[in-house]
Simulated scan of single mutants.
Amino acid sequence: MTTYDLDKFKGVFVAMYSAYDEEGNVCTDRVKNLAKYYVNTGVEGLYVGGSSGEGVLQTVEERKKMLEAVMEAVGDQLKIIVHVGANSTKESIELAVHAEKCGADAISSIPAVYYRLSEDAVENHWQQMIDSTSLPFIIYNIPQTTGFNLTQTLFKKMAAQDKVIGVKMSGESVYELQQFKANAGKEFLVFNGPDEQYLGGRIMGADGGIGGTYGVMPELFCQLDEYFKQGEIEKAQELQAAINEIITRLLSFPSLYGATKAILQLRGVETGIPRSPMLPIKDTDWAEVEKLNGVIERLVAEHTNTAKK
């Protein structure tokens, strides 16, 4: 039985974007403004330094700077999960220790990328992070980018530890998500990763979700979660379908994060452009970005008003 308060991790967590200045350096003022933007949207918290946050493209010091700004801005208002995964275990431990020092609520990590590591190597990599702090640990399984698909054998071994409280399941199979829940028990947290199947993940046992596109439509994912909890499945299906159309359009730009950062810019939230090799939107894309932002804002108004009736 875990000694951690798991309820505070249930719900919608925004996988927070990076925020740079015009020279491409981490800008703490922009980080703080972005973090504050999410405070009154209904989300439970932020997932800092993950895929959407470009953590693997940043130095250790930049990642620390990002977290420190987030904690200063909203650490007492939102739950903060910090992705500390890096290619070297040494850097991952350094980031984990820093997260605990900053007052984060939990840490999380992918396996190291590039090298095709054995299960024993990945287990050792994660275990050293787990042992380096008193914080709860959330496994991040995203095989399509890391090349490592977490097996149920290793998962059950990791999940047996008190400190390991959950898994962010970003694989594409809700069956695997359901198996993680089944093999670890009802107390264990499972976060849906693929934004386009949030509802499917919740139906199959996920306790909430962590996602990148939440960052430009957090209210829609919170309302989707509310429809699910209220048993209004037809409304949830309708909203998930609308969200998926938005995601499809976001994926049509040179990069997803270039598009989401552009949408935030239209709303007065400056975050700069993605770090190379990821691409910003093209000058010719602005009209489409404005249309898409309009679609999101109309859906937010529509479903917020519907929920109040």
Rank of each mutant, 00 (worst) to 15 (best):
M1A: 05
T2L: 03
D5A: 09
G11I: 04
G11C: 02
M16N: 11
S18I: 14
D21L: 03
E23V: 06
K32A: 15
N33H: 03
N33C: 04
Y37G: 07
V39A: 05
G45E: 04
L46S: 03
V48S: 03
G50I: 07
S51L: 15
G53W: 04
E54P: 12
E54V: 12
G55K: 00
L57S: 15
T59Q: 12
V60N: 07
E61A: 09
E62K: 08
M71R: 05
Q77S: 12
L78P: 04
K79N: 06
K79P: 00
I80C: 08
N87H: 07
S88H: 11
S88R: 11
E91Q: 08
S92T: 14
L95N: 08
A104Y: 02
S118C: 10
E119A: 09
E119P: 14
A121N: 15
V122M: 07
N124S: 15
I130W: 01
S134R: 08
S134V: 08
Y140D: 11
Q144T: 12
N149F: 09
N149T: 12
T153D: 13
K157Y: 10
M158G: 10
A160V: 00
D162Q: 13
D162N: 15
V164I: 09
I165H: 06
I165S: 12
G166F: 08
V167P: 15
G171Q: 03
S173F: 04
V174C: 11
Y175E: 03
Q178H: 13
G185S: 13
K186W: 07
K186Q: 15
F191Q: 07
N192T: 09
D195W: 04
E196S: 14
Q197Y: 02
Y198I: 10
I203N: 07
G208L: 04
G211V: 03
G215A: 15
P218S: 03
Q223K: 10
L224K: 01
L224E: 00
I233M: 11
A241P: 00
I243K: 01
L250G: 07
L251Y: 13
F253T: 06
S255A: 13
A262R: 07
L264Y: 08
R267K: 11
V269E: 06
E270W: 07
P274F: 15
P277Q: 11
M278Q: 15
I281Y: 01
A287S: 05
A287E: 10
N293C: 03
N293R: 04
I296G: 02
E297N: 05
H303G: 00
H303R: 05
N305D: 15
